[in-house]
Amino acid sequence: MSQIIKVGMADMNVCRVPDRITTLGLGSCVGVVIYEPYAPVCGMVHIMLPNSKAITNNENPAKFADTGIMLLADKLAAMGLSRSKMRAKIAGGARMFKYVAASDMLKVGERNAEAVKAVLQSLSIPLLAEDCGGDFGRTIEFDPKTAELCIRSIGRPEKII
C-alpha cells in the first residue's frame, strides 16, 4: 500500500517509492522537492523565510531557504542519493494579498522563491521546473517514481511540472 507523506509548514520529510510526498496549501511559502532521477528516494521541505541569518529565532532549520535546503540535501545524501545527480522542482511563493504590494512583509513570497533558487544554485542542484508567483495557494504532490510534481489550486486546472 502506498502512502502520501505530509510535510507541514516549516517542516521537512522524505519519501520512498511507492509513496508520494505532499504539502498542502502553500501560499507565500515555497515547497522544494529534491530527488535524483530513477532513484527511489526523494524529499520535500516547506520553506517559510529566505534567510536564517537575518533572524534571531532560527532553531528550526526547515523554516529557512538557506538551512532547510542544505539539511534536506544532507539527509538525502545520507540515504544514498548522489549529490551530483540531485535535481529540484519548486512551487509556491505567491502573494496572497495584493494591494499592500509595497509592504515588505507581502513581498516575502518573491523573496522566498529567489532565495530558494540562489541556495539551489550554490549547492549545484539544477532546478528543473518551477511554478512560482501569482496570487493563489497551491497544494503540491510529488511522485518519486515519475518525478512529476502535481500542483492543485482552487478554481484552476491541475498542473504537472
Binding site: 509548514m9 496549501g25 502553500l26 511559502c29 517559510m48 507581502l106
Partner: peptide
C-alpha cells in the same frame, strides 16, 4: 486555501 492565507 487556509494554509496559503495563513502563511502570510
Amino acid at each position: 486555501m487556509a494554509g496559503a492565507i495563513m502563511s502570510v
